[in-house]
Amino acid sequence: MNATLQAYLVIALLALSSLVIVINLDWRVNIFALAAQYVGVFLLVAGEWPTGMALTKLAVGWMAAAVLMITRIAQKEEPRETSWPSGRVFRLLAAGLVLLTVWSASAVVAEWLPNLALFQIQAGLILIGMGLLQLGLTAQPLRVTIGLLTLMAGFEIIYAAVEISLLVAGLLAGVNLGLAFFGAYLITAPSQEEHQ
């Protein structure tokens, strides 16, 4: 398959999964979309890093998703957010706006970062933009954690092209797992004392 076509298929996967995360309010779908997102991240990072090292992104992402999934399964139903914009049309329009902004800004960013291919920048910016949008729309621990993981995934796509350091890869893996772990803590903490 043509490399450019392959790259844009991965971008489409990332855009779709992040769009699902922003629009959909069902936590199960969101966590599966997060896991799918890391497949795209792995495919893009594998172009820059040795496959074994790039696989850590996938493994860490899936572990993060698994931690969130297991935690959420054990919880009662989440209360609906009433004070935040929850209409799907609103979220869809906002996400569309983010995608348009990324599309138009990526060429400018590409001039700043000549080491990176345009598709890497687009993929990274899509996840960063959607992650920021998600963070702006919610205050629920699970959705905030997914938003932060999405944002970090976008940053890691771009950063992988400029920095190949085992320590940084290890620390970023630690940060991602830490976000998932402490995000899970935030989900369970309010009901924790009852079980003690």
Binding site: I128, L135, A139, P141, V144, L148, L151, M152, F155, I158, Y159, V162, E163, V168, V175, L179, F182, L186, A189, P190, S191, Q192, E193, E194, Q196
Partner: peptide
């Protein structure tokens, strides 16, 4: 544990995490 999660801690987590990409980059 046992207390509702406040908006402050969520914002703390978000803002401090947002700093990371900027400084690393």
């Amino acid at each position: 544990m046992g207390k509702p999660i406040g908006r402050g801690v969520i914002r703390f987590l978000i803002f401090q995490t947002l700093a990371l990409p900027f400084i690393l980059f």
